[in-house]
Every structure is written in C-alpha cells, then in structure tokens.
Write a protein that binds this DNA or RNA. Structure first.
Length: 103
DNA sequence: AGGTTGACCACGG
DNA sequence: GCCGTGGCCAACC
C-alpha cells in the first residue's frame, strides 16, 4: 500500500520527531525514481541550505525505511554517502544501479 | 546550559 | 586517490 504524505506525517509526529526531520523525510519522499539528490540540495529544498549536516541526522532516523527512498540521497562530490538500512552502502549502490540512477 | 556526535561540505597538502 | 582542518546545523546527553 502506498504511503501518502498525510500518513507519513502522522506516523512521524507519533514518533515524536522534530519538524526539521519531518520536513527532510517528506522532501525525500518526493524524489522521483531513477534520480538522486545530494544532501545539500535536500537541505535547500526544505529552506535551510546550510543544514546539510543535520539532514544526515534526520535520514538516519528514518522510521519508514523501505518506503521513503533515502537511498536516493548522495553526497555532493558524487560518492554515495552512508546508509543505515540493512545491507548498508553496498545495498544502496545496487538499488540505485537497478533504478538507473547511477552507472 | 554546555559539550559531543554525525548518512556532510569545501579546501588544501 | 588519501588525510587533516575548519565550518555548518540539529539532535542527543
């Protein structure tokens, strides 16, 4: 079943997450399949261009791991960055490769 | 209230 | 390519 924005919002609020983290995760949900964005771009999307570091903190807390495509978020220099879901960075790379987002 | 930590960034050697 | 340094911000203790 597809995860709607409203549903994600109530789950996250229920977890007691901060507004900042909620915004990060909502923005992450909008990333189209087959594309990647950087942590910095993501920070800019939520109106805090310099909070790219805190963006990482927020994604790590992602309570909806498979449904929010946090694997589509990479570093500014083009490398992958970290990934806390099972499989780690290796899994992240293979998923992106399967989507055609990276070579 | 203050210090530490981290899925980062940019720059330099 | 690697490593160190300074800077940034929010979360956590």
């Amino acid at each position: 079943m597809a995860l709607t924005r409203d549903r994600a919002l109530s789950i996250m609020k229920n977890k007691g997450m901060s507004e900042f983290q909620i915004k990060v995760l909502l923005a992450t949900m909008r990333i189209p399949k087959g594309e990647v964005v950087t942590y910095k771009e993501l920070a800019k999307m939520i109106g805090k261009p310099k909070a790219y570091r805190a963006v990482g903190t927020a994604l790590k807390n992602n309570p909806l791991a498979p449904q929010i495509p946090c694997h589509r978020v990479v570093k500014s220099d083009g490398t992958l960055g970290n990934y806390s879901a099972p499989g780690g960075t290796k899994k992240k790379r293979s998923m992106l490769r399967a989507e055609g987002a990276i070579k």
